[in-house]
Design a protein around this nucleic acid. Sequence first.
RNA 1: GGUACCGUGACCGAGUGGUUAGGUAGCGGUCUGCAAAACCGUCGACAGCGGUUCGAAUCCGCUCGGUACCUCCA
Length: 489
Amino acid sequence: MENNLTVYNTLSRRKEKFEPMNPPFVGMYVCGPTVYGDAHLGHARPAITFDLVYRYLKHIGYKVRYVRNITDVGHLEHDADSGEDKIGKKARLEQLEPMEVVQYFTDRYHQNMSALNVLSPSIEPKASGHIIEQIEMIRKILEAGFAYEVNGSVYFDVVKYNQNHNYGILSGRVLEDLMTATRELEGQEEKHNPADFALWKKAQPEHIMRWPSPWSDGFPGWHLECSAMGTRYLGEQFDIHGGGMDLLFPHHESEIAQSVAANSKAPVKYWLHNNMITLNGQKMGKSLGNAISLFDFFAGNHNLLQQPYSPITIRFFILQAHYRSTLDFSNEALQAADKGLKKLMAALATLDKLAVSEKSTSNITELRKKCYDAMNDDFNSPIAIAQLFEGVRIINSVKNKKETITDTDLEILKKTMIDFVFEILGLKQEEAGRSNELIDELMGTILILRQKARESKDFATSDLIRDHLAKLNIIVKDTKEGVEWSLEE
RNA sequence: GGUACCGUGACCGAGUGGUUAGGUAGCGGUCUGCAAAACCGUCGACAGCGGUUCGAAUCCGCUCGGUACCUCCA
C-alpha cells in the first residue's frame, strides 16, 4: 500500500517511513488503564493520541487491529510499602469483591472514553483473563534460561539477558548504571540482582487476588501482561506499540526483554510514546496529588477549574499540541481551545450555506494536501488544525462575499473539513441543549416580535428581548441574511 | 549522579538553515441602530554566551532554568 506516513520511532530516535509487516494489516498495542480509580486528564492523552493514530491509519486504508488492555491484577500501590496488591487493597477497604471494583472503574473509564469520542479498540483484553498465557510465557522464559525461581516467585535474569542482548535498547539505559542506582527495597533479597524484575510473585496470605501456577499461588509481574496479550492477539511480532513516555522504562524495556527471551524475536517494529500533560510544569499524576479526574473536568468540579470543560474541548486541547510534546494545563489555555473549537464548528455549519461562483480565490486542493502532509509527518495534528483554520477563514470569507469558490472546490473543501474534523481528529458537534419543534416555533415568534420592534426603531424593546434570551443562554445575532439564534452551553 | 528531553511573543502551541504557523487575548478598521459574529490590518518571540556558516530561533559547544524515568505504580 502506498503511503507517505512517517512515524517517530523511539527505538531509533528518529522519524521512519511507516511500512507495516503485512500490509494492509496493521497490529497496534497500547497500554491501557489500571482500573482502580477514575481516569484523570493524564489518562486522556494516550487514549486520544492513539485514537488519532488508529483513526488515521484506518482513514488511509489500513486494516488495523487495535488492542488496548485493561490492567486489573496484581500491582502495587505507590505509597504502600507492604507490597500490597493495588486492586486487592481497595477492595478490602471497601468490602467489595476485587472484580466488583474492576467492573465499576472499567465502566467509568468507558464512559469517559465515549465522552471524549475515543473509539473502542478492536480488542480490550483484561490481564486477569490471560493468566494462562502469562504462565505459559514465564515457562518459555524459564526454559530459555533467562529466569529463575526463588521461594515460589520467578524473576527475570536481566544480567544474563544483557550478555547476549541489549537491556536498554529502547530507553538508552546502561545496565551497569542501573545496578548502582537501584535502591534497597523490601523483597529485593530474593533477586540475584537489583535490576531483575518479577515475572511471577508468590502471594502473601492476606493477598486477595491470586491464581494457581506451577510455582505458587500468586500473581503475574508488572510487565508480563502486555507481552503475553500482545503476542496472543497480534503475534510474536507486530507493527506498533504505544504508551506514555513514563512507561518507556522499565515497562516497555522489560516487555522487549520478555518477548525476546521467550520468542527470540524483537516484538515491535515501531514504538510510539506520547508525552505528559503538566500542571504548573509538573506531570499530572494520581500519586502526585495534582490529578483532576475527567469527570471533574466535565463538571467543573475542582478548585483549579474556573468552569466546566466539555469532553470535546479537552480532546481539541490535546490535539492542538503534538503528541510528543508536553502540554501544559491552564484555564486560560483550555478556554482558548474552547473558543477556537466553537469557531471551527460554526464554520462547519456555514459550509452548507455557501454560494458557489465561476472561480475560486483560494487553492482548495493545496489546502487538502497540506492537511494530509501534516498528518503524514508523525501525526502532526496541530499543523493539520492550523490548516483547518485556513479553511475556516475561507468559509467565512466566502460567506461574507470577500472570496469566491467553485462548486467543485466547495465539494473538496467540504470533504476535507468533514474528513479531518470528524473522522480523523474525532471532534464532534456538542449539543448545548435540546432543541425541538416547540422551541423553534416559540423562538420564531419571539424573534418576529423583536423584528417588529427593530423596524419601528424601538431598540429598547428589541434589546430587552435579546438580553433576556441571553440569560437563558440563547444568543441572538443580527446578520445580513437575517436573525440567527443558537443555544450556548 | 545516570538516561531521555525541553526552554518560542500576554497565554497555549507548531516549525524550517535564508520566505505567514495556528488558536486565544490586545490594538486599529470594515460591517451593524447597538451588540455579537465575521473579515481586513496590526503589535509581538525564539533562555544566555560563544562557535560553524554568506546567513541560525533552526547545526555544534558551554552556562542557566525546567521535566520525565532510573520504586515489584502500570
